[in-house]
Computed example of a mutant assay.
Amino acid sequence: MRDMARMVLVLTTVCVVAALGLAKVYDLTEEPIRQALREELLRGVRAVLPPFDNAPDQDARVVNGRTYYVGRKGGRVVGAAFEAASPEGYGGWIRALVGVDREGRVTGVVILQHAETPGLGAKAADPGYLAQFRGKSLRSANWAVKKDGGDFDQITGATITPRALVKAIREALEAFEAAKSQIFTPGGEG
Rank of each mutant, 00 (worst) to 15 (best):
Lys147Trp: 05
Gly91Ile: 04
Leu130Gln: 11
Thr107Asn: 06
Lys136Ile: 05
Ala85His: 00
Asn142Gln: 15
Asp148Pro: 06
Leu138Tyr: 06
Asn142Ile: 14
Ser86Pro: 04
Arg95Met: 00
Ala141Val: 06
Trp93Glu: 12
Pro127Ala: 07
Val110Trp: 01
Pro118Tyr: 00
Gly89His: 06
Leu130Gly: 10
Gly135Met: 03
Asp101Thr: 10
Ala144Val: 00
Pro127Asn: 08
Ala144Thr: 01
Trp93Val: 07
Gly108Val: 09
Phe82Cys: 06
Ala96Ile: 03
Gly104Thr: 13
Trp143Glu: 15
Pro127Ser: 11
Phe82Arg: 09
Gly91Pro: 05
Gly108His: 08
Gln113Cys: 00
Ala122Trp: 02
Val145Leu: 05
Trp93Met: 13
Asp148Gln: 13
Phe152Val: 08
Trp143Ala: 14
Gly108Gln: 03
Gln113Val: 01
Arg139Lys: 13
Gly91Lys: 04
Lys146Tyr: 01
Asp148Leu: 13
Glu103Gln: 15
Val145Ser: 05
Gly150Cys: 07
Phe133Trp: 09
Asp126Thr: 02
Val98Met: 08
Gly92Ile: 07
Ala125Thr: 12
Val145Asp: 10
Arg102Asp: 11
Ala141Trp: 09
Leu120Glu: 02
Tyr129Arg: 13
Pro127Val: 05
Ala144Cys: 02
Gly89Pro: 11
Gly121His: 08
Gly135Ile: 07
Pro87Leu: 05
His114Cys: 01
Ala84Cys: 03
Phe152Gln: 04
Ser140Val: 01
Gly128Cys: 06
Val106Gly: 02
Trp143Phe: 14
Lys123Asn: 08
Gly150Gln: 09
Asp153Asn: 15
Leu130Trp: 06
Glu88Gly: 01
Gly104Met: 12
Ala141Phe: 10
Val100Gln: 02
Phe133Ile: 14
Gly135Asn: 07
Asn142Leu: 13
